[in-house]
């Protein structure tokens, strides 16, 4: 896992909204869509967190400080921060899915008085895989936000916190489901189960948002690589209202 802090060398970048993404180019290798994971209050510092799994992300992860890379963006529809104002906000993140939500969490905490209860429920594979651990611990010390972390499994000597899937945290959380906006990001299976658990808890599908991931190329809805049924993830998403994609998520072919 690598976090890149990018300083623009050209004109001032367009301010990105939480949940949007940029296309990053490793010169001579290729381009990849990477969500912004930094603090939106610092627009001059573009932060992206990547998992080095493919040729482009591996090349990006190997860049040394001062190296140049290409960037275009920001693209896509982000998290519904305006809609969340005045309401409780439940954030459910799984694995690397915490990165695209980190911008939303920063925004919520910066403008804390605008929102009701703020809960962050995060599931990771093991204690060693917890992303932004120091930051989670800092947020957890605040009295105006509830941060809960669970892992799928843990060595006894490593961990004294929750062990179990992320949906188990929901039952213990205190919020008003009828007046809640839920933001969910993680592996697609985790998001499906989380959206179902949120619905069981009384959160409306219309107030539940998922950040989808598909192979994106052009980022402007032209090439069709990220087509998801009738929508393009890059142009119409990556953040979608759950009721608009729930039926699509059930199709194995998509």
């Amino acid at each position: 896992m690598w976090t890149l802090e990018i300083e623009p060398s050209g004109p001032a970048p367009v301010a990105a909204a939480p949940g949007q993404f940029n296309m990053l180019t490793a010169f001579g290798v290729g381009e990849a869509a990477i969500s912004l994971s930094g603090d939106p209050a610092e627009p001059g510092r573009l932060v992206h967190t990547i998992r080095a799994v493919g040729p482009v992300s591996r090349a990006l992860a190997q860049l040394r400080p001062g190296a140049a890379l290409g960037l275009r963006g920001p693209f896509g529809a982000g998290w519904p921060m305006a809609e969340a104002a005045g309401r409780d906000v439940v954030i459910m993140a799984g694995g690397l899915g915490l990165a695209p939500l980190r911008t939303a969490i920063h925004r919520l905490l910066t403008e804390r008085a605008r929102y009701g209860q703020v809960l962050v429920l995060y599931g990771a594979r093991s204690p060693a895989d917890i992303l932004f651990r120091r930051e989670l611990e800092t947020w957890r010390r605040r009295l105006d936000v509830e941060i809960e972390v669970t892992v799928d499994h843990a060595a006894v000597s490593d961990w004294r916190g929750h062990v179990g899937v992320v949906t188990t945290l929901l039952g213990r959380a205190s919020f008003d489901p009828a007046n809640t906006v839920a933001l969910v990001c993680g592996p697609e299976i985790m998001m499906r189960f989380s959206a179902a658990a949120l619905a069981d808890a009384g959160v409306r599908a219309e107030a539940t948002y998922l950040s989808m991931e598909r192979n994106m190329k052009c980022a402007i809805g032209l090439c069709g690589h990220c087509q998801f049924g009738p929508v393009f993830i890059c142009r119409d998403g990556p953040v979608f209202r759950y009721d608009r994609i729930a039926a699509l998520l059930r199709h194995k072919e998509l």
């Binding site: 694995g95 990771a124 594979r125 179990g164 899937v165 188990t168 299976i189 985790m190 189960f193």
Partner: peptide
Amino acid sequence: IQRLQAAQMQILDVYG
């Protein structure tokens, strides 16, 4: 059932 579903998710190792 909850334990079974949790075990399914853990076996799938969705976070990779």
